[in-house]
Simulated scan of single mutants.
Amino acid sequence: MTEPQPKKTETTCGCKLGRVAAKYDLADLDETLVGDWTGDGDERRSTRELATYVNQQILKIALTNADIPPKEGEIENMYRLLTSDDVTSGTRIEIRNELERDGVPIEAVESDFVSHQTVYNHLTKCLEASIETPNDEERLERSEEKLGALKNRTAAVTTDTVEQLDRKGILEIGKFNVNVSVTVTCEDCFREYTVRDLLDQRACNCQEPGSAEI
């Protein structure tokens, strides 16, 4: 198995993303990243979304180099199985072993994956791109994504822990599901909200003019 070698794409900078773009011959990547990051309204993509895009392109090229033409939707699903917090370690190991058997140097490929912070640094420092301060809607959306990711990670870690204990015979359990619920309670009126409801509503009912106290 051989790693992808640099092709005709020139390294635009010395950061990791610049080196990866050259290694995988990701032509016009900088233009795509800047355009998507600074786009207007719904066209704008976060650095987290752009990191996912870059990493999926890396995975796609790695499969192609191993003579495994990916089918529609396969790259997205495979990337999720490799990186998502809601995927068990057993499933992740299985997909990695399968890729290794098919000739994909998955360890090297995963080491080339970039984080959203790497994308941000590349955009702002290497490409000198900038965007306006996010509005309230964007801040709420990012907050919801962050809290959702933490919730999924808690569920995944709990599932993995229970599975390990079950396999070792330390506890016994049949087929199970893990559900994580986070609520916020207003100490002024003692109303309880799910995080999503509170973000959607943006205020406790007791903060509205004319609301009766409990």
Rank of each mutant, 00 (worst) to 15 (best):
Q5P: 00
P6E: 09
T9Y: 13
C13K: 03
C13M: 02
C15I: 06
K16C: 09
V20T: 14
A21T: 12
A21F: 10
A21G: 10
Y24T: 07
D30H: 11
E31H: 12
T32F: 09
L33W: 09
L33D: 04
L33A: 09
V34G: 08
V34F: 10
G35S: 12
T38N: 06
D40W: 05
G41D: 14
D42L: 13
E43Q: 15
R45K: 15
S46Q: 11
R48E: 15
R48F: 11
E49G: 08
A51N: 10
Y53C: 02
V54L: 07
N55C: 04
N55G: 05
Q57W: 00
I58M: 01
K60W: 01
K60R: 15
K60E: 15
A62C: 01
L63A: 07
T64H: 09
N65Y: 07
A66H: 09
I68D: 08
I68A: 10
I68C: 08
I68F: 04
P69I: 11
K71Q: 15
K71W: 04
E74P: 00
I75D: 01
M78E: 00
M78T: 14
M78C: 05
R80Y: 11
L82G: 05
T83G: 04
S84Q: 13
S89K: 11
G90L: 12
T91A: 14
R92G: 03
E94C: 01
N97C: 06
E98A: 15
E98K: 11
E98V: 05
E100M: 10
D102N: 14
D102M: 13
G103V: 04
P105Q: 10
V109E: 03
V109Y: 04
E110N: 02
S111D: 14
F113S: 03
T118M: 08
T118A: 12
T118L: 04
T118Y: 02
T118I: 06
Y120P: 02
L123N: 04
C126P: 03
L127I: 09
E132W: 04
P134Y: 06
N135H: 07
E137L: 07
E137G: 01
E138Y: 04
E144C: 00
E145F: 02
E145G: 04
E145I: 05
L150K: 14
R153I: 02
T154V: 13
A156L: 05
T158G: 00
T159W: 00
T161R: 12
T161W: 02
T161H: 11
V162W: 01
R167S: 14
E172G: 15
G174M: 09
K175R: 15
V178C: 08
V180G: 03
S181E: 15
T183L: 05
T183I: 01
V184P: 07
T185W: 03
T185I: 10
C186D: 13
D188E: 11
R191H: 06
Y193M: 05
L198K: 01
L198T: 03
D200I: 02
Q201G: 00
Q201W: 01
R202F: 00
N205F: 05
N205G: 13
C206K: 00
E208S: 06
E208L: 11
P209H: 02
S211Q: 11
E213S: 12
I214C: 01
